[in-house]
């Protein structure tokens, strides 16, 4: 059993919220998840994603920042019913067959039972901190993307390392989400 932990720093990130956010993002050609609390791929692989948080809030993360900068420029013109959300989160990736064991020591959500194809996004409390967790990969190769408030970043990162310590084969910081 092994796990890897990574801090994600190479991805651009932006958030939108509001009653018209879904319609407007659709007009901008961004693929959107249909259900609340789910995610979809917006680029070539599972790195570029759009997460729908609740009904009317979206988190976009991409390797190529240009597309997001374009959205940012558009929104600066104050689109009715679409509000930008500053996303300076700390982002992590936990992968490996021990990933579920690591999460089970920190969070009371049954991540192992989530089906990969359902593409669910989970908002929960982990070690006392609000986090968003997106399971990726497949049953054999599970990978979790995790976001938290950046001011909790050091605490979450050091706790992850402490819990995952016995399983760690490679801790990269910084790294990517791929």
């Amino acid at each position: 059993m092994s796990a890897t932990l990574q801090q994600v720093v190479n991805l651009a990130r932006i958030g939108f919220k509001g009653p018209n956010a879904a319609a407007w993002l659709g007009e901008q050609g961004i693929p959107l998840p249909e259900r609340a609390n789910s995610w979809c791929v917006t680029g070539d692989d599972e790195q570029d994603i759009c997460v729908r948080l609740g009904a009317s809030e979206f988190l976009l993360e991409r390797g190529d920042g240009n597309a997001l900068r374009k959205l940012q420029a558009e929104i600066a013109a104050h689109i009715p019913g679409v509000y930008p959300v500053l996303r300076e989160d700390c982002a992590f990736v936990i992968a490996g067959d021990a990933a579920d064991d690591v999460l089970a020591q920190m969070c009371n959500v049954n991540f192992a039972a989530l089906r990969a194809e359902a593409r669910e996004a989970v908002m929960t409390l982990m070690i006392g901190v609000a986090v968003t967790v997106v399971p990726q990969g497949n049953a054999a190769q599970r990978r979790y993307r995790l976001w938290c408030d950046p001011t909790f970043g050091d605490y979450v990162w050091s706790s992850l390392n402490e819990v995952a310590g016995p399983y760690l084969i490679d801790t990269k910081s910084p790294g990517g989400a791929r």
Binding site: K17, G18, Y83, L86, R87, D89, D149, P150, F152
Partner: peptide
């Protein structure tokens, strides 16, 4: 009401 709240405490 027709408004949305955003908490940016840690982000700013």
């Amino acid at each position: 009401l027709n408004c949305s709240l955003v908490n940016v405490t840690g982000h700013r």
